[in-house]
C-alpha cells in the first residue's frame, strides 16, 4: 500500500479519531482524579468488597458455565440438526436484549415464585440478592461470547483429526480432551476472557436481581446518584485499573497454558 496516498491519510485520521474517542474519557477520568482521592477510595472497604465480589463472582460464573457451554459449542460446531438456526438465535438473544429486560426475565425465573427460585428456596437459598443470583445475571448476558468463540474454534478444527483420534483408539471423551479442546484452546481462552469481562461490567440485569450485595458497577452508579461524579470517579478508575491488570494476567496465563497444553494433554490420556 502506498503510505503517502490521500486514502492512507484519511484512514489514519479516522482510526486516530476512533482511538481518541475510546481513550479520551479514560485519560480525562485519570487526570481528574487526584492521587489522594484515588488512594482513599482504594482503602475504602466498601469499594474493595464490591470489586472483589464483582471479580470473584464473574470469574466463578464464567468457570462454572463454561463446563456446560464448551461441550455445547462443540455440539453446535459438529452437528447439523433441525432447528439449529433457532438454537443459534437463542444463544445470541441475551446480547440483543436490553439488559434491564434480561434482568426482569431472569428475576421471574429465580425469584421465590419462579421455577428455579422455588427449587433453591427448598434448600434454603434465596437467589435474589445473593452472589449466586448475581452470577446467573452475569452469565445470562455474557454466555453467548464464550459459546460463539468456542464454536468458531471447534468448527476450525478439521473433523478428520477427531476421526483419526477415534480410529487410533480414543474414546469420544478422550478425543475431545486430547484433540478438539487443545486445538481450540485459543478461541476458548478468548471467549472466556470476553465472557468474564462482559459479566464483570454488567449493570442492568444485576441491579434488578441484586442491588445488594453491591457489585462494582452498582456501587459506582449508587455513588454517582447520591454524591455526584467526583465521588464516583475514583471508584470507577480503581475498578478499571483492577480489571485491566486482571485481563493482562489472564492473557499471559492463557498463553503460558497454551504452550504447556501438550504436557497436560498427554497426562490426561
Amino acid at each position: 500500500m502506498d503510505t503517502r496516498s490521500t486514502f492512507h491519510w484519511i484512514i489514519l485520521i479516522l482510526s486516530s479519531l476512533v482511538l481518541l474517542f475510546i481513550l479520551a474519557p479514560l485519560i480525562g477520568m485519570a487526570l481528574d482524579t487526584s492521587p489522594a482521592e484515588f488512594f482513599q477510595t482504594v482503602r475504602d472497604e466498601e469499594v474493595q468488597d464490591s470489586v472483589w465480589l464483582t471479580l470473584s463472582v464473574a470469574f466463578m460464573a464464567t468457570l462454572i458455565f463454561s463446563i456446560m457451554a464448551i461441550p455445547f459449542a462443540w455440539l453446535m460446531a459438529r452437528y447439523n440438526f433441525p432447528g439449529k438456526r433457532i438454537v443459534q438465535g437463542l444463544i445470541d438473544l441475551p446480547v440483543v436484549l436490553p439488559h434491564s429486560a434480561a434482568g426482569i426475565a431472569l428475576l421471574g425465573f429465580i425469584s421465590r415464585e419462579g421455577l428455579l427460585g422455588k427449587a433453591a428456596d427448598a434448600i434454603g437459598l434465596n437467589l435474589v440478592g445473593n452472589p449466586v443470583g448475581i452470577a446467573m445475571a452475569m452469565a445470562f448476558v455474557s454466555l453467548s461470547f464464550l459459546i460463539n468463540a468456542a464454536r468458531d474454534g471447534f468448527a476450525a478444527v478439521p473433523e478428520r483429526l477427531e476421526k483419526a483420534a477415534m480410529n487410533l483408539g480414543a474414546s469420544p471423551v478422550k478425543m475431545f480432551f486430547t484433540v478438539s479442546l487443545p486445538l481450540t484452546w485459543r478461541n476458548i481462552a478468548s471467549g472466556f476472557i470476553m465472557m468474564f469481562a462482559r459479566g464483570m461490567s454488567e449493570f442492568g440485569a444485576i441491579v434488578i436481581i441484586a442491588y445488594y450485595p453491591m457489585t462494582a458497577p452498582v456501587l459506582i452508579y449508587e455513588r454517582f446518584n447520591q454524591f455526584g461524579i467526583s465521588y464516583a470517579r475514583p471508584a470507577s478508575l480503581f475498578f478499571i485499573l483492577v480489571a485491566l491488570v486482571i485481563f493482562i494476567i489472564i492473557r499471559i496465563l492463557s498463553n503460558q497454558a497454551n504452550r504447556r497444553l501438550k504436557r497436560v494433554n498427554l497426562t490426561i490420556m
Binding site: 483429526l161 476421526k163 483419526a164 487410533l168 480414543a170 478422550k174 484433540v179 487443545p182 501438550k262
Partner: peptide, 18 residues
C-alpha cells in the same frame, strides 16, 4: 490428519498412551 499440537513422537505415541 497429523495432530498439529503434538510432536512427531507424541503423534506416534498417541494410540499407545490411549
Amino acid at each position: 490428519a497429523i495432530f498439529p499440537h503434538l510432536t512427531v513422537f507424541d503423534n506416534i505415541a498417541y494410540p499407545l498412551r490411549i
